[in-house]
């Protein structure tokens, strides 16, 4: 595919957008892993959301 004389600009803008989106996805995934690990650590210590007085999970 020939993108003409300004191919560099087109590729750069698509590339930078891709990078930004990938960074967002990475942020969301890493954040999720962090929170789930913290929840698991807390559960291992016996602290979970199950409360003695109400049977909500």
């Amino acid at each position: 595919m020939d993108l003409g004389p300004h191919a560099g600009f087109i590729i750069a803008s698509y590339g930078l957008c891709l990078l930004t989106v990938l960074a967002l996805i990475a942020w969301v995934r890493i954040d999720k892993a962090n929170q789930e690990r913290a929840l698991k650590e807390l559960a291992d210590q016996g602290i979970s959301r199950a409360r003695p007085d109400q049977g909500r999970n």
């Binding site: 969301v28 954040d31 999720k32 929170q35 789930e36 913290a38 929840l39 807390l42 210590q45 602290i47 979970s48 959301r49």
Partner: peptide
């Protein structure tokens, strides 16, 4: 939606830590 789910989990962790 994914970021909101993370935020809900983050608050849950915070609440549990404070309870602990």
């Amino acid at each position: 939606l994914m970021a909101m789910r993370n935020e809900v989990l983050r608050r849950r962790v915070r609440a549990l830590r404070m309870r602990a």
